[in-house]
Design a protein around this nucleic acid. Sequence first.
RNA 1: GGCCAGGUAGCUCAGUUGGUAGAGCAAAGGACUGAAAAUCCUUGUGUCGACGGUUCGAUUCCGCCCCUGGCCA
Length: 292
Amino acid sequence: MQELRSKAVIICGTTASGKSSFAIDYALKNNGEIINIDSLQIYKELPIVTASPTKEDLKKVPHHLFNFIDGKDEFSVGKYLSLAKETADEIISRGKLPVFVGGSGFYISAVLNGLHELPEADIKIRNKVSKMTNEEIAKELEKNTPEVLQKININDRQRLSRAYEYFLQEGKSFLSAKENKRLGALPYDFEIICVSRPKDEINERIEQRIYQMLDDGMEQEIKNFLSLNIPEQRTISKADGVQSFKKYFDGLITKQEAIQEMIFKSKHYAKRQRTWYKHQLPENTIRKELIG
RNA sequence: GGCCAGGUAGCUCAGUUGGUAGAGCAAAGGACUGAAAAUCCUUGUGUCGACGGUUCGAUUCCGCCCCUGGCCA
């Protein structure tokens, strides 16, 4: 006999696809509560830039895991996964439906499939590795676990560094880690809805939304954020628009150029999301084209 | 109207001492296992402004015309 699993829903879609308002409607109709599954809306510092839910949204239906992590703190999919499980279990215990909403493919994959059993990144080791050049890291990997270099491009700084960090922590090849079983997949019966819109429409909505963000006080928000001096390497600092506006504040480019750069970055992000959703989501995903 | 500088990829420009061209950005496709809005990989034929001339051969030299800036009338 198969155990009876609780139901849960994941609603994903590219940036500016309208997934958030779709999700609110969905939650209202299905006795649901919304759980964030977006890697940047997790942080509290940039609600406007990250298009986090508005006060009006929050009034309509309960939202969880939005804008609560301090940008200077380290965060990870692993941490997200346990928070997500806790939150969803609690929602289910109250007889409600968990409705995950967000665009981060990596997080969605973790929720659905779990993560390989391996230790979290160690900040001390990461800081040490961060001082090395790609060539130096590659040389060390070549010496110790040469097979990982077949899989990782030498320019792919992040994966290169992660593989070497893992070696330093565990003394083993990062590839062997991927043979470990996956743990922590959330034990629910998932319905996955991937919303989309024609590409031209997404592009237009991206532009419109950025002008709306400007009206909503994005410039001041970014200024405040920059005054916190959170390192540029942190993901929160790489939210689309932040570095572009920093260049504008520093007098390196015009405001119009900063806006244009932010638009380009957002379009690139949407592109990467499309690729991910096309190839990485499970077969039974419901693909839904939104209109209007 | 005169002089000067330009007109080369969707954009900004480089280049060809005459043998039909290449960067950045954009665009398209792809990868992805605790940093993921991250990180990375692949993809460049375009009447080289139009028309004539010289030449085996012109985007390159010459003439003329058109367009865009700037300066002078």
